[in-house]
Design a protein around this nucleic acid. Structure first.
Length: 295
DNA sequence: AAGACGGGGCC
DNA sequence: GGCCCAGTCTT
């Protein structure tokens, strides 16, 4: 059971969310669990505003798991276009196939069945369980972790993700009532995304500013090790992978290696990247060149 | 526990 | 330019 102060915290977030929620299309009422699952795949490490048009097109074309499963993975990769992390498209296509083959074409309701799907981890499984089915689970993403770190723990920056710590921390705050829990899960994420932001928090607009431990402590700066600086993207293998995938998406016949060599003068590097794409299942190599996977 | 994995938004 | 983003998988 939440302590009284935690109850107050949740109540304020829920009330704020009722009036401040962005009108994101996957929050519409009576959406299918499939629609929610698609949104959660697309939202992994990707800002919500950028996902909107991709999700709209995807749902118009593939309104059910069976619709997606009936087409080759190459079409999923083409529709994914430049959203990033194309393995997600591959996993979503594989998940659709598994839903058809093992779950009657429906998204399963249970956490264990959801976690068994490729590309579904602790966050996505609980997000689908909570937002698609209304079940009471703690949903913790990067926004929620930052809100809890500041408002509850009184520190500027959240510790690295840890389901072992993050889920119990959210569970302590989660209202007992199903609908309130749903709104608190969504509201805590929204608060982190739009008010309690990483860079410049807008504390003057925060519904829990009066309860915030970080604010009460005088906004102490982050102490301890900095998050490891992310590797440079320009000139990276990741960038080259993206460029190769762009070529493969545009082609409808195998692309000869000689054509791909125009993307990268260093043949060793090109071959390393091609091998990694094949290993990931994002490309298939044949005698006449490389192509997107058919299945 | 640490790295790899896209691409774009934002300061 | 660097940091961040509704994470997950692999080693």
């Amino acid at each position: 059971m939440p302590r009284p102060r935690d109850d107050d915290f949740a109540t304020r977030v829920v009330a704020w969310f009722a009036g401040a929620a962005r009108p994101l299309p996957w929050r519409a009422a009576d959406l299918s669990p499939w629609a929610v699952l698609v949104s959660e795949f697309m939202l992994q490490q990707t800002q919500a505003a950028r996902v909107v048009p991709f999700w709209e097109r995807w749902m118009a074309r593939w309104p059910t798991p069976a619709a997606l499963a009936s087409e080759p993975a190459a079409e999923a990769l083409r529709a994914w276009d430049r959203l990033g992390y194309p393995r997600r498209a591959l996993w979503l296509h594989a998940a659709a196939t598994e839903l058809v083959e093992r779950h009657g074409g429906e998204v399963p309701r249970g956490l264990d069945a959801l976690l068994a799907l490729k590309g579904v981890g602790p966050y996505t499984a609980r997000a689908v369980a909570a937002f698609a089915f209304g079940d009471r689970h703690p949903v913790v993403d990067t926004n929620t972790r930052r809100v809890i770190a500041r408002a509850i723990d009184g520190v500027a920056v959240a510790a690295p993700p840890s389901a072992a710590r993050d889920l119990p921390a959210m569970e302590r705050l989660l209202p007992a009532d199903r609908e309130a829990a749903h709104a608190f899960n969504a509201g805590a994420m929204e608060l982190g995304a739009t008010v309690c932001t990483a860079r410049t928090p807008r504390c003057d607009e925060c519904p829990v500013a009066a309860l915030c431990a970080w604010r009460a402590a005088g906004y102490p700066p982050h102490e301890g090790p900095r998050r490891r600086t992310q590797a440079r993207f320009e000139g990276s293998d990741r960038q080259l992978r993206g460029r190769v995938m762009r070529e493969l998406r545009a082609a409808h016949t195998p692309v000869p290696r000689g054509e791909l060599a125009a993307l990268e003068p260093d043949e060793t590097r090109l071959d390393r990247v091609l091998a990694s794409l094949v290993a990931d299942g994002l490309a298939v190599g044949a005698v006449d060149g490389y192509a997107l996977p058919h299945n």
